[in-house]
Design a protein around this nucleic acid. Structure first.
Lengths: 207, 207
DNA sequence: GGCTTTCGCTACGAGTCGTAGCGTAATGCC
DNA sequence: GGCATTACGCTACGACTCGTAGCGAAAGCC
């Protein structure tokens, strides 16, 4: 779960509490509608009907379609885990395959790119995506990198600023390549592709 | 230009010819509307007004918003050229910087990702994007690779099938990383970043 | 001049948007 | 139990966009 984003004072709140079932039902209905209709034909009225709630309830909780879809899609990526396979190459292959499996879901494919596109013109939305999707998963790079350095597979960087830049670069290269392969080239990121990708990432094009 | 896509028989066509100025005006108006309004708020009626043509003229030439924006954005990428800087690393840095400059344009940012998102549910649209954007620019990878192999910087592959897979992989890695850096991480792909990226791409993470 | 196709314009029904208003349900506090 | 407070479901609304149809005029080829 992403957590309630409208709780200004999470302490005392008299009155009827918001239905937690409604939240999960709405997000599930959003993903269902994304699968059947895609982003552009998805309407909030339709999502409300699917979820069994009133349309006004939706507007009370989310500012619009963008925010709703971000929350609905973000939940999908929480399943990502970094396996410990003994080597950096195997770890990368494992997590990339998981990432590819999520991007193979139609609800992720249609929703993710659409909100990213909208975010190019909406600073607040971009921050929401960063917080609930990007930064949440950057932990995988940090963890894998630390493990590899402990194993001696990667050189340790002392300068923390330079290390942060490297982490960002790796994240952009990994996530970008898988997204581009899956959504733009529209080819499956299968085991063979992942192996080739990991080889280039670790050893470069020259070898 | 992408070329007329409705000419079933390009030979004899009696009657009043379609205005070429209208085509360029419409595509320019589309990019202008993308900058000011973004994808979701762009309407075909608005584009028609900006271009100084009737709304019906738009619908006679394009099936819908998706197809129109693909053509409008595709023109932006035709400016890409592969510089000959003497080394593979310098060539890559040059072309990636050009690519990043295009992605920095607001009309490219908002439009490109949106149509890619729509293409996840539209086979015909996906093919249109592949033909007018992706495959058109894959030539850069082919050319740069051939040059580098002639220089001895890259090993030559005999198997043409394996070579094609490598070209696709490189394209996904380069384009994906730049797109992710620019649109998702929302950080500029400046010279420093491009240098780091090229270094990892050519030599891998280990060095 | 005839034929063909495009163009600009107007008008239309259908559908979605986001909001307002109202009565009811569910909680905390006294 | 009574009260204040908040969330909920429902209905209705004006505003907007959609994609299409119909018309007369314009611009080319023969």
């Amino acid at each position: 779960m992403v957590g309630c984003m409208h709780s200004r004072s999470p302490a005392v709140r008299s009155g009827r509490p918001r239905s937690a079932e409604a939240d999960t039902a709405i997000l599930a209905a959003t993903r269902e509608a994304l699968v059947e209709l895609g982003w552009s034909k998805l309407t909030l009225g339709d999502v409300a009907t699917r979820a069994g709630v009133a349309k006004t309830t939706l507007y009370r909780r989310w500012a619009g379609k963008n925010e709703l879809v971000v929350d609905a899609v973000a939940e999908l990526f929480d399943a990502l885990e970094l396996p410990d396979c003994g080597s950096l190459a195997a770890d990368i292959e494992g997590v990339v395959l998981q990432f590819a499996a999520i991007l193979a879901l139609p609800e992720a494919r249609s929703g993710l790119m659409a909100v990213v596109a909208e975010a190019t013109r909406d600073e607040v939305l971009r921050e929401r995506i960063r917080a609930s999707v990007v930064d949440r998963q950057k932990r995988l790079v940090l963890e894998g990198r630390a493990r590899a350095q402990a194993r001696g597979e990667l050189p340790a960087e002392e300068d923390p600023e330079s290390a942060a830049r490297t982490v960002d670069l790796i994240f952009d290269m990994v996530a970008g390549a898988v997204v581009h392969r899956t959504l733009v080239s529209a080819e499956p990121a299968d085991e063979e592709w992942v192996r080739s990708f990991t080889r280039v990432l670790l050893q470069g094009l020259g070898s």
